[in-house]
Design a protein around this nucleic acid. Sequence first.
DNA 1: TGAGAACAACTCACTCTGAGAATAACCCCA
DNA 2: TGGGGTTATTCTCAGAGTGAGTTGTTCTCA
Lengths: 250, 250
Amino acid sequence: MSEEQYLAAYDPRAYPAVAVTVDVVTLTIREGALHLLLVRRAEQPYADFWALPGGFVRPAEDLDAAAGRELAEETGLGGEDLHRVHLEQLASYGTPGRDPRMRVVSIAYLAFAPDLPEPSAGTDAGEAEWLPLAALPSRRLAFDHERIVADGLERARAKLEYTPLATRFLGEEFTIADLRAVYETVWGHPLHAGNFHRKVLSVPGLVESTGATTEHGGPRGGPRARLYRAGDARLLHPALLRPATEETAR
Amino acid sequence: MSEEQYLAAYDPRAYPAVAVTVDVVTLTIREGALHLLLVRRAEQPYADFWALPGGFVRPAEDLDAAAGRELAEETGLGGEDLHRVHLEQLASYGTPGRDPRMRVVSIAYLAFAPDLPEPSAGTDAGEAEWLPLAALPSRRLAFDHERIVADGLERARAKLEYTPLATRFLGEEFTIADLRAVYETVWGHPLHAGNFHRKVLSVPGLVESTGATTEHGGPRGGPRARLYRAGDARLLHPALLRPATEETAR
DNA sequence: TGAGAACAACTCACTCTGAGAATAACCCCA
DNA sequence: TGGGGTTATTCTCAGAGTGAGTTGTTCTCA
């Protein structure tokens, strides 16, 4: 049988039905705190629960494209803003029973976004909101989304160490202090300002100077700060390591 | 996502069929060289091509379990040997058209195995073999498996840096030189024996002494070496960093 | 105008790393 | 059986990197 004949005779329906979805863990920093994008489910199962934005992958759609589409739909953002968002595959979740309706395998994505406007402007999803991560423990999410969020957070923290993705939480131009605030927020503890400054400038390709400075000093005083933009490095060498957390996973 | 999910809940078959498979990138070290487990495809498409072992996820089977099952089937190993194999999810691949038959989303896994016997003992797959990675460039694999292998290799190299998984390539007991050989093989360049030795013993939880030594010296001379077993660390602090590779991904 | 805040640069002690070398145990071969 | 070559393990040393604190300046706010 030739390959053509084989394909013509092939019956895809002979296989058990499995649905494939994408879910996106979208992180941003608002008012100095890490926030997560959630939508409220309108229907069963888990009606009225908050969940990660996501949905079915369309028949001729690539996985990455599906994740980007879901993110755009849920945030109500056009390509312009979305261009600055970093989107990467996180992991896949397919334990039988994770969706009570049928077998669903979900490909989770992780997104780093600059401070975006309030979500849900003109989307088909009902409510959407940025939830401060500090408020997450008191909220039960639909499906296994709590686990997915936890995995995404850990990935995000690790990624700040060896990639310049922290800059994706900021605008086009930023100060070293802005960048430090990102690290402090995501890692959850303060860093030594002087050492951070030295380190950031010493890592090749992390940031490059714009030559300009802020218009004014900080709101509580201090000199104008120099402005930088993201550099061209994809990986940081040497990495910006998190301060040892004592027995980090023995 | 409303009408679509509604329909899905009542008639899964109403959905465009998507098949979910697992593929496993299995690495081992044989005769001082990194090897990859491959099987030869007996059927269309890509008949006679070599491919990663893998197959369809069964209806009530977890993804991890499916990967473990495929690995066991293909290597012909029982639970005893498989217990020492490290298996983790690598990434998912679902570009439309990657399988000419239908939409197939594949969850790829990465496995680190100690030196295993020749594969394919009594399996349903036709041929199976350990391919030295050095021979890979001259061989075309089925589907997008070359890409998956490349991703798996990069992940493996990175994992050696911050996890004790190098020990998974070795037996229960090993010498520091054995461990160094694993790093040199996977990373592809020699390491300074003295510095490696100092570093391995200084990282908490990487290895622990058994108190014993090898029975004899090396085949070409040298003293007996002390034996160690894997420690209890899951993450290495500080990490065993690869020597800077000059512009690693600028 | 003075106090407080914060950017930027610098100092200093300590740790970690790469490179080389020393010591000693052990194999193989003459 | 003795010597040469090989390898495990330990040391030394200089240079790079890091944590913590200090200094000088610029700026905002009261």
